[in-house]
């Protein structure tokens, strides 16, 4: 196989890798993740449990219901979740996103065509995963 023929798939792979990297973190997914995180925080602060649970992923919803012993819509409003505050940084990698606000950090996943909250009320722990009030486990 000639070197030219080899270079074609390799350059395609390099381009693909660049697209998949942070360079490819387009504003669209980031904006959509911020909207989902903001709506979730607003629903919780307004005690709209149904709306908040509609933006929650399956794993954290199940975990929340299990630990509280109540339906999600009742349990979520009982959690001491801080508001997001001013958005400081947003990162999207593949199907995952992190929205950092001035008072909370929220982790989201792009599932079934929508960004859903997988963890909220998260505080950083150096060298360890964030400690989150609502999480999938």
């Amino acid at each position: 196989m000639s070197n030219r023929l080899l270079a074609v798939p390799l350059c395609a792979l390099a381009l693909c890798a660049v697209t998949l990297s942070g360079c490819g973190a387009a504003r669209g997914p980031q904006d959509a993740a911020v909207v989902a995180a903001t709506h979730f925080a607003a629903a919780v602060s307004q005690h709209d449990g149904a709306a908040a649970c509609g933006l929650l992923g399956e794993a954290p919803r199940t975990e929340l219901e299990k630990s509280a012993g109540k339906p999600c819509a009742q349990a979520i409003t009982g959690e001491d979740l801080p508001g997001l505050g001013r958005i400081a940084k947003v990162e999207t990698w593949g199907e995952q996103a992190q929205v950092r606000g001035s008072s909370d950090t929220v982790f989201l996943s792009h599932l079934t065509g929508h960004w859903l909250v997988m963890a909220a009320g998260c505080t950083p722990r150096p060298g360890d995963p964030y400690d989150c009030i609502v999480t999938g486990g």
Partner: peptide, 8 residues
């Protein structure tokens, strides 16, 4: 990084 975010 996707894995990092999945692991919070």
């Amino acid at each position: 990084n996707a894995d990092q975010l999945r692991q919070r």
